[in-house]
Design a protein around this nucleic acid. Structure first.
Length: 321
DNA sequence: AATGAAGGCAACCGCAGAAGG
DNA sequence: GCCTTCTGCGGTTGCCTTCAT
């Protein structure tokens, strides 16, 4: 496992490529192919190491490189594959024609990852964040509230009918949300090993490929992709959280149970731009279903979480998002 | 207009596996 | 089977641009 000595050679140029260097490399490869990357620089008259040439070619000069912003469909593909494969950028890149692993990696690190975090998802597991211990006192208070309501249904009904009903409903909804997080945390702990190494598991990759290669979406739960995904990514849907049918049908045609789970986590189509989060917060709707249906997230698909639109200004909830 | 902060991206570094002798 | 070389990959860095003050 010797280290490549190519970059240890002194006197080789580093840093940004000049147009002249690009031209030399392009001309040479178009004429001769890249052959051995190690010998290429000398043959092409470049004072660079082979590694640098290969990187420049694969990430920038290759004629089939697609430049520009990632489309929503590409974004969905990345999210979907990342949820299954993890940081296997090259594997992900094979399913995005014209995109390089480096580009995808950068896009993930600078955009998607941040959005997931801001939405309260763990970017590695694609599951709701579970750092709820900071909110333990509130959790206890909510649990007490639940007990109180359970013990006195009449009072509960009265409260809900009266002026305080909204507050109670909100508190109950919070409680339900927290219970979901707790449940999610438990399953995360159980499955964290398999989830964390999902990308390195050949079966997982095969499953992902199977899902992609599947000629049409299928609800057949015996399909390998579905089965594998169910194992690796236990359902993380939220109570009452609507799973956009558009999301499962949209664009990619992955189909199958795998997509249901994965996109339920992400709330359907692509993630909203960061700005949209505040938009959603300032535009609460009357109920969870309509709230998500009317969300501006990702091309009109459902919101990932109904709760922020219930009580967008609540610091307790925003702490989670 | 100047300056600092933040974001985005190209490129480098080092590790690991494959291939060949 | 062992060693060396080469290639590919993922993580990280640093520069450049944009935005905010």
């Amino acid at each position: 496992m010797g280290r490549s000595p190519c970059c240890d050679e002194s006197g080789l140029k580093k840093g940004p490529w000049t147009p002249e260097e690009d031209e030399k490399l392009l001309q040479y490869i178009q004429k001769n192919g890249h052959g051995s990357w190690r010998t290429l620089p000398r043959l092409a008259g470049l004072n660079r190491c082979g590694k640098s040439c290969r990187l420049r070619w694969t990430n920038y000069l290759r004629p089939d490189i697609k430049r520009g912003k990632f489309s929503q469909e590409e974004e969905q593909t990345i999210l979907h594959l990342h949820s299954i494969l993890g940081n296997k950028w090259s594997a992900i890149a094979t399913h995005l024609p014209g995109r390089t692993d480096n580009e995808i990696k950068n896009f993930w690190n600078t955009h998607l990852k941040k959005r997931l975090i801001q939405m309260g998802f763990d970017p590695m597991t694609h599951r709701p964040r579970t750092d709820f211990f900071a909110a333990l006192p509130q959790l206890i208070a909510l649990a007490a509230l639940r007990d109180q309501l359970a013990a006195d249904p009449a009072a509960s009904a009265q409260l809900q009918a009266g002026a305080g009903g909204v507050d109670v409903a909100i508190q109950a909804a919070k409680l339900q949300y927290l219970q979901c997080l707790l449940q999610s945390a438990a399953t995360t702990i159980d499955g964290i090993a398999s989830t964390a190494v999902a990308g390195s598991a050949p079966d997982a990759e095969a499953a992902a490929l199977g899902a992609l290669c599947s000629p049409q979406g299928t609800q057949d739960s015996t399909a390998p992709a579905s089965a594998a995904s169910d194992q690796l990514l236990p359902s993380c849907t939220f109570p009452e959280a609507p799973v956009s049918s558009e999301a499962n049908q949209g664009g990619l045609g992955y189909g199958g149970g795998a997509d249901v789970d994965v996109f339920a986590c992400h709330g359907g189509a692509s993630l909203p731009p960061l700005a949209d989060l505040s938009d959603a917060a300032t535009n609460p709707s009357a109920d969870g279903c309509s709230a998500t249906a009317s969300s501006s997230f990702g091309g009109g698909a459902g919101s990932p979480l109904p709760w922020p639109e219930f009580f967008p200004d609540d610091p307790f909830i925003t702490d989670f998002l």
